[in-house]
Simulated scan of single mutants.
Amino acid sequence: MSWLILGLALWSGAHFFKRVAPQARAAMGARGKLLVTVLSLLAVVLMVIGYRAADFTPLYTPLPGMGHANNTLMLVSLFLFGVGGTKGTLYPKIRHPMLWGVVVWAVAHLLVNGDLASVVLFGGLGLWALISMLLINRSEVWLAPLGGRGLKGDMMNLVGTLVLLGVIAMIHQWLGHPVFMGTYS
């Protein structure tokens, strides 16, 4: 569990650095971006190792049928991740679509995983995303972006979402956690 917590702390620290110490981060220039990238990758590795190695300590039992809710929320989450890149109809309407995608992803996984390691990982990343939105909103005025691709962007995003969901399902299957078979862990 300590590797998982260290990974979460490293992820949060690397991402909060720009918001907590903007002058120090700006002074680092491109080296700062590289540092955040390296720390983020290391954090992901630590979170994966820590999560996979953690003892199963049940905290609650997920309700029956939550697997379907999880799958639906994952579609929403992945779609939100693509909003900024494909610039569809939601692009000028949603601030922080990727961070909202993380929140939806976290909720989806908490619906089907009731163990301590899952609550720490998914709850921790969901909390990080919410705090990130608060910090960004406090420090920057949002000017809704103009333009975009409209429905074409939405269709591009939908296709990308479905492909990515398929890849994620295959990875989960490979790891022993099938996502469409009614077995969730």
Rank of each mutant, 00 (worst) to 15 (best):
W100S: 01
G101A: 04
V102T: 06
V102S: 05
V103P: 00
V103G: 05
V104R: 01
A106R: 04
A106P: 06
A108S: 09
H109E: 03
H109F: 07
L111V: 05
N113Q: 08
N113E: 10
G114H: 13
D115A: 12
S118T: 05
V119D: 10
V120M: 13
V120Y: 06
L121Q: 00
L121Y: 01
L121E: 01
G123S: 13
G124P: 04
L125W: 05
G126H: 03
W128G: 07
A129F: 00
I131F: 08
I131N: 09
S132T: 08
S132K: 07
L134T: 13
L135I: 12
L135A: 11
N137M: 11
N137D: 15
N137Y: 13
R138M: 03
R138C: 01
S139C: 11
S139Q: 12
E140W: 11
E140A: 10
W142E: 04
W142R: 04
L143N: 12
G148R: 02
G148V: 08
R149D: 08
R149N: 12
R149W: 11
K152C: 03
K152G: 10
K152P: 01
G153K: 06
G153W: 09
M155Y: 15
M155A: 15
M156L: 15
L158I: 12
L158C: 12
V159P: 01
G160R: 07
G160N: 08
T161F: 13
L162V: 14
V163G: 07
V163S: 09
L164V: 11
L164N: 04
L165R: 10
I171S: 04
I171N: 11
H172K: 14
Q173A: 08
L175M: 13
H177S: 15
P178H: 13
F180C: 02
M181S: 15
M181L: 13
